[in-house]
């Protein structure tokens, strides 16, 4: 997965969970859960969407890697390499 594809995948997932989020203007290194007010179920949905679309296994111990937009993109690129 290219960084561009990964970024698109992450952005699409976030928009599905928070339809009114302005993902394009979203700071790439801001904490997602706080900034977008994701509760634990929202975050689980985020994990589900990334896992199914990028076809990667994401364990609970990987959750900290999904803290920000940038780190999520890096994680997907790394896992699909």
């Amino acid at each position: 997965m290219t960084p561009q594809d990964a970024r698109r995948t992450v952005a699409d997932a976030l928009i599905e969970i928070v339809p009114d989020a302005d993902v394009d203007a979203f700071p790439a290194s801001a904490p997602l859960r706080e900034e977008l007010e994701l509760d634990s179920l929202d975050f689980l949905t985020f994990v589900e969407l990334l896992s199914s679309r990028a076809r990667v296994r994401i364990d609970e111990m990987d959750y900290p890697r999904l803290a920000t937009l940038d780190s999520s993109v890096a994680f997907l690129v790394e896992q699909t390499a």
């Binding site: 634990s40 689980l44 994401i58 609970e60």
Partner: peptide, 17 residues
């Protein structure tokens, strides 16, 4: 819970709530 979540597919994972 973490133990169960290792075996569960992501769609069925548990949260503390």
């Amino acid at each position: 819970m973490h133990d169960r979540n290792r075996d569960l597919p992501v769609q069925e994972r548990l949260v503390p709530a």
